[in-house]
Structure formats: structure tokens, C-alpha cells
């Protein structure tokens, strides 16, 4: 009897220890995502695909400094615009142009005061072939290639700028038959990287980091040959109450943020 009571007590104590342990583990698991910072928030950001690499670098630094959790979605500005107009949960929008953030402000879906130009795009003529491009103008004029890839000028500001460059060089008509269009600048890059197109116009940020060309050969197009590619960011309705979203906008606009942006080949803000 005494013995039975003893084992019963032991079992009871074991069970209570297990319960306590379970509670603690549960507590740790719940705390884990906050990384120690209880004021940390999650920010959901829609980013134009040309800004993929710099945005990843920016958010990495930002997350390290603030403890906030930044979720990035990359894609075409036109698709993001349609999704945001139809209730997508993004809190910030980094567009590839100025028109779409302006239109969102006009629709009451974004905060007018928050809109600012976070980057001015740089255009580059790029080939995966290291010997293809010497002087860009001569390479284009000689036209010794089968396919020249650009982003769709109707959809992508970089595509429009590429057409403006060809017009400025008076080559638009002669090269028309060789143009292939990607739906966005990321696809134009794919066409060239897979060597299906011999060369093409892409964003500097796609092929350069810290001013160094990753591979192939390239010609940095002088910005005088096309209209400036101004890219605006805006705080969306879903982000109005998020301090983290506002902090991220401020960080991108800050000197430290703009230094990161410039490292990826974007022209400085004037």
C-alpha cells in the first residue's frame, strides 16, 4: 500500500514536470519568431523585378538593424497594380515607374505624402558573350547579331528607354526585325543569359554589383540617350498603421540606403 502510494506520487510528479516543460517549450516556440524584439513587425512589400537584388540587400540590412521581418514579393509593376487595386495585402509598393504609384494615390489606395523616387534606373547593353560588345554604338550599328532583346516597351520603363536609345541612334527601323521582347526586364535578361538572344538592353542592377560587371560584356548607356527611368515607392492603404513599413521607406531614402542602391548601378538622385 505504502509502496503503491509512492509510485503513484512519483508518477504524479513526473507528469507535472512534463506539463511544465511542455508549457515552457510552447512559450519558447511562440517567442522564437520575434527574435528577442517584441516590437518587431512584419512588412509585406511588392517590388518591381528590376529592383530585386538591391531590395534584398536593403531588407537584409534593415532587418538586422530593426528586427522587423520584411517579406518581399517580386514581379511586374502592372500586375502588382492590378492586384493592389483588387485588395492585395501589400503594405509598400516599389514600382518600376512613377505612373502606377500616382494612379494608386489618385484612387485613394496609397498615401500621397509618402511617394518618393527611390531610384533612377541605369540602362546597359549586355551580352553573355565576353567578346561581343566593345563600343556599344558600333556593335549596334554593325548589326552583326540575330536577336536583340528588350523589355516590352509598352509595359516596362526599361523597354521604353531601350527604344528611345535606338531612336536617338537612328537605328530603330533597321533593327526592328531583330527585336525580341520579354514581358519584363527579368525575362529580357533570361533571353540573353540563355544565349537565345545575342545581346540586349537590361537594367544595370541585373548585371552589375558595386560597379563591377558579373559576366559577359556590356556597354553602359549614357543617360542622355533616354528619358530618366524614375522609380517611385509609395505607402499603401494596408501599411498606414504599420510603423515598420514607414521605417523601411525612411531607411531606403536615407543616405545609408541610397548608398546600397547606388552600388547596384542606379544613377544617383538629383
Amino acid at each position: 500500500m505504502k509502496e503503491a502510494l509512492g509510485t503513484g506520487q512519483l508518477a504524479h510528479r513526473r507528469a507535472s514536470i512534463r506539463r511544465a516543460l511542455r508549457r515552457q517549450v510552447l512559450g519558447w516556440l511562440l517567442l522564437l519568431p520575434y527574435g528577442g524584439n517584441l516590437a518587431a513587425e512584419e512588412v509585406l512589400v511588392a517590388v518591381a523585378s528590376n529592383f530585386t537584388a538591391p531590395m534584398q540587400a536593403l531588407s537584409e540590412t534593415f532587418q538586422r538593424q530593426t528586427g522587423h521581418d520584411v517579406q518581399l514579393a517580386f514581379g511586374s509593376s502592372g500586375r502588382f497594380f492590378a492586384q493592389i487595386s483588387n485588395g492585395a495585402p501589400y503594405q509598400l509598393f516599389f514600382s518600376a515607374d512613377q505612373a502606377k504609384p500616382q494612379a494608386l494615390v489618385a484612387q485613394g489606395l496609397a498615401e500621397a505624402e509618402s511617394r518618393f523616387t527611390y531610384a533612377v534606373g541605369g540602362l546597359v547593353l549586355w551580352s553573355a558573350d565576353a567578346d561581343r560588345i566593345g563600343s556599344g554604338v558600333e556593335t549596334l550599328a554593325a548589326a552583326e547579331f540575330e536577336r536583340l532583346a528588350i523589355a516590352n516597351p509598352r509595359l516596362a520603363p526599361y523597354g521604353l528607354a531601350a527604344i528611345q536609345v535606338l531612336q536617338a541612334l537612328e537605328l530603330e527601323e533597321s533593327l526592328q526585325g531583330k527585336l525580341v521582347q520579354g514581358e519584363n526586364i527579368a525575362q529580357a535578361y533570361q533571353f540573353i543569359a540563355s544565349a537565345n538572344a545575342n545581346l540586349g538592353f537590361v537594367a544595370r542592377s541585373q548585371v552589375m554589383s558595386n560597379g563591377v560587371l558579373g559576366s559577359g560584356s556590356a556597354w553602359s548607356v549614357p543617360s542622355a540617350l533616354h528619358e530618366p527611368i524614375r522609380q517611385d515607392a509609395v505607402l499603401l492603404r494596408n501599411g498606414l498603421n504599420s510603423t515598420a513599413a514607414r521605417e523601411l521607406l525612411r531607411f531606403v531614402a536615407s543616405e545609408a540606403g541610397q548608398a546600397i542602391v547606388a552600388g547596384f548601378g542606379y544613377v544617383g538622385l538629383d
Binding site: 502592372g78 500586375r79 497594380f81 492590378a82 494612379a103 516590352n152 509598352r154 509595359l155 514581358e183
Partner: peptide, 8 residues
């Protein structure tokens, strides 16, 4: 169609 949508 996709182009039309993307071009708004």
C-alpha cells in the same frame, strides 16, 4: 490579353 492587362 496579358499585355493589355499589364498595360492597364
Amino acid at each position: 490579353i496579358y499585355d493589355h492587362v499589364e498595360a492597364l
